[in-house]
Amino acid sequence: MSLLLPPLASSEFRLIPAAAEAALPPDVQLPEDVPPAPWRCTFDGFIWVQRAGVGAAAMLPEPLRAGPRWLMGAHLHYTDTPVGPYSEVFAALLVRVGVRPAAHVPFMAVDELGSVRGGRANWALPKTVARFAGEPAAGGELEAVGPGWRIGTRARPLGPWLPFRAALPHAQVRPDGTVARFTTTVAGQARLAPVEVEVTSGDRLAAWMPPGRHMAVQWRDASLTVTAATRHTP
């Protein structure tokens, strides 16, 4: 039987294991409360898969130690969420938790403080704040910039829009070492879109999420549901 995990307290937010680039700025003031999971959202944007770079294993907290070979990146704009519209960029390492594959997110940035609190409280997602430019619905060039880092994407969509649905299990580690499991389900219109990804960083983001040209999927007006987090039991 799965055991639902309570939201993290605000005092635990800065203790979530994360990449250095996902650190919360010291002066950020988050909302007092946001809606609990599950969240249902609508978005446009790009999701790609690439080889994980040097130092990817070091991004995994102790309960998830394994050698990740693949990384999933995304540059999205949410048009409807429980906390309003916002943009997002993230990098997730594809690992195994026991015998099951899962995505672990060491880095995620958004431009909505309610999303920062919701991600950290509900799922131990290490969301931080960034500035965004570009419109994912229109394709072309997109940019996300935070303290000491930048991610830019240029896409060239191919082929027709087709209906597509996917579900991805996640594994995040809470400050007490508990592995939180939850699932993201995406459904909507999608098409292939090779994307050129530029990553610069004063720390290690560009090493374990190396820049390059990758195959991506472009989504439009897609629905996304994130379930409540449950405790992982081996």
Rank of each mutant, 00 (worst) to 15 (best):
R220W: 08
P157I: 10
H170T: 12
V99N: 13
F107W: 00
A20M: 00
P160T: 15
F132Y: 05
W39M: 04
W219F: 10
G53P: 03
A167H: 01
L94I: 13
D176Q: 03
P25S: 08
V129C: 10
T230W: 14
G98T: 09
R165F: 06
E135F: 09
H75G: 14
R131E: 13
A19P: 00
E135S: 12
S115Y: 06
S11P: 09
P126E: 01
F46P: 07
D27I: 10
A207N: 12
W161Y: 10
P25M: 06
T225M: 08
A92M: 09
R213H: 13
V129H: 05
P25R: 09
T178L: 09
G148Q: 00
T230I: 11
A144M: 09
F164G: 08
P169V: 01
G188F: 03
L71P: 03
P7G: 00
Q50P: 11
A190G: 14
G119H: 02
A229T: 06
A22M: 04
D176N: 09
C41F: 11
P36R: 03
A207V: 05
P163N: 08
R174A: 07
E88S: 02
P160S: 15
M209C: 14
F13Q: 07
M209I: 11
L168W: 15
N122W: 02
A58Q: 06
P68E: 09
V226E: 06
L224Q: 15
S201E: 04
R117I: 02
G118C: 02
T225F: 07
L3V: 14
A171M: 02
Q218C: 08
P25W: 01
L3R: 15
P6Y: 11
V105Q: 06
A109L: 01
S87H: 02
V105E: 04
P17D: 01
A66D: 03
F43Q: 03
R117K: 10
R231M: 12
R69F: 12
G139Q: 05
W39S: 02
P6L: 03
P157V: 13
L142I: 12
N122A: 10
E196D: 15
M215C: 14
M215V: 14
A57E: 05
P126N: 04
A22C: 05
A137L: 10
L168A: 14
G55H: 05
Y78S: 05
A180Y: 01
S223R: 15
E88N: 04
G118M: 03
G159P: 10
R154Q: 15
L94H: 07
G188A: 08
V217G: 06
P101M: 04
T79Q: 09
T233S: 14
V95H: 03
N122T: 05
P35H: 06
A58P: 04
E21Q: 07
G119N: 01
G84M: 01
L162Q: 14
L224P: 06
R120I: 04
L94D: 09
A103P: 03
V28Q: 05
A222W: 02
R51T: 15
A66Q: 04
V105Y: 00
G146M: 08
R174E: 08
S10Y: 00
T128P: 02
I16V: 08
A144N: 11
H214E: 13
V49M: 11
